[in-house]
């Protein structure tokens, strides 16, 4: 019997507890963030929840001036690609950036960032902001 669980719901539910969680493969030690049911590295399916460091590096970004309606309230905002300390990469909103200083941010890439859990309408999601 496959031991499936509602991974997506659980990931978002952990944000409600203030935790940034991922999965760690019990066979090879690779991380899955966000969580999926199969290890990308060794293809094993025995994975366990672990708390992530929340630390990573912003490696690229863009200004999103015209987001889809669900994100209109944030416009314009910076959206970026973050490589986590544990290895996986994820793209999401980057907060705490002066929109007039995008060139400066680009010159500083890669930039250390840390996770910040954000409240939205009915759920919390993960964003990042530069350290310091």
């Amino acid at each position: 019997m496959v031991k499936m669980q509602p991974y997506v719901k659980n990931w978002y539910d952990f944000f409600e507890e203030g935790k940034v969680m991922g999965l760690k493969c019990n066979r090879c030690g690779s991380y899955e963030f966000p969580p999926v049911a199969t290890c990308h590295n060794c293809f094993g399916t025995d994975l366990s929840w672990v708390e992530m460091s929340g630390r990573g590096k912003l490696v690229a970004f863009t200004l999103n001036p015209y987001p889809d309606p669900p994100f209109a309230e944030y416009a314009p905002f910076i959206y970026g690609e973050v490589v986590l300390e544990e290895g996986p990469a994820y793209a999401t909103m980057i907060l705490g950036v002066d929109l007039d200083k995008q060139e400066e941010l680009y010159e500083r890439l890669p930039v250390d960032v840390t996770a910040v859990i954000q409240q939205r309408d009915g759920y919390k999601f993960i964003a990042f902001e530069p350290v310091g």
Binding site: T62, Y79, F125
Partner: peptide, 8 residues
């Protein structure tokens, strides 16, 4: 849900 932008 992270505010995806195609331009990204």
């Amino acid at each position: 849900p992270g505010g995806m932008a195609v331009s990204a």
